[in-house]
Simulated scan of single mutants.
Amino acid sequence: MIGRLALPALLVVTAALAQMPSMPTMAQAAPSTTAPLPTTSVTTDTATKTVKVVFVAGHDTANNGLNYNGDAKGEKTLTVPLGWTIEVTLANGGRMPHDFAVVSGASVPSNVGGAKLAFKDAATQVTMPGMVSPTTKFVANRPGSYLILCRVGRHAANGMYVKLVVANSLKEATYR
């Protein structure tokens, strides 16, 4: 009896796993029931050469919820000075899982899940709705133009990305 039930159960589990995207580990933060999600912010600390970024994925219904801070399709740009440390925290205000990853290039790669990060550790964990990712840090050690995008499913292909510019001439970070 157990043998006849094991195969259908295995097929159901296999089918469910096949539907899951190949992604980094899910954020392990506990859901917030009393504290609201943090708000979007970009702050510059010139003394430590650090940019602290809090982005809210799925901030509102813009681009069907596929957005950072309500921004999508590269309409905003985060600019940072060359060589500075960027500390990223991603809050998920949407209804789907999201992440934050920095990749090279001016267009969304066809295989975002397999795209190489532009900088070492330049990605958050996948963050579930109502949760906040652990802060991740990376150094913007190469000048150029990059994309900040979501690697979950087809989110980036559907417009969930903003731009990142790293330049030597900058004195502080901006997001506009």
Rank of each mutant, 00 (worst) to 15 (best):
T46K: 15
D45N: 11
N141W: 06
F55Q: 14
A106I: 10
T43H: 00
E87I: 05
V152F: 11
M23Y: 03
A62W: 00
E75G: 07
A62Y: 04
A157T: 09
T50L: 00
M20D: 10
A118G: 04
G144Q: 07
G74P: 01
R142A: 14
V108A: 06
K163Q: 12
P24H: 06
N92S: 10
K120C: 06
G74Q: 01
T39F: 10
T124R: 00
G144H: 06
N158T: 03
V132C: 10
V42A: 07
A29D: 13
M128E: 15
R151N: 11
V103N: 01
P24F: 13
K73Q: 15
D60Q: 05
N67P: 04
A72C: 05
A140M: 03
M131A: 14
H98G: 05
L117K: 03
I86N: 06
L82T: 07
Q28G: 12
H59P: 06
T48I: 03
Y68K: 01
N63L: 09
N69F: 04
K49G: 06
V42R: 09
S22W: 12
T124L: 05
S41I: 04
M128V: 07
T77I: 01
A72Q: 01
G83Q: 09
L164A: 10
L37R: 01
M160N: 11
A118L: 08
V112N: 01
P24A: 14
R95S: 15
A47C: 00
V152Y: 14
A29C: 11
P109V: 02
F55Y: 08
P31M: 10
T135V: 07
I148L: 13
A123F: 01
M96K: 08
T127G: 09
A27P: 02
N67M: 09
E75Y: 00
A35S: 12
V80Q: 04
L117T: 04
S32E: 12
S133D: 13
M160K: 12
A157G: 14
K163G: 13
A106G: 11
G114S: 13
A157W: 05
R151E: 14
S145H: 12
R154T: 15
V53G: 08
V102D: 07
A140P: 11
A91C: 06
G58I: 09
T39S: 14
S22Y: 04
G93F: 08
G58W: 03
G130M: 03
S22G: 11
V54K: 11
L164Q: 05
L147I: 05
R154L: 13
V51Y: 05
P21E: 13
T48Y: 07
A157V: 09
R154I: 14
T25H: 13
S145Y: 03
K137D: 13
N92T: 07
N158G: 15
P24S: 14
V80S: 04
K120M: 11
F100N: 11
L90E: 04
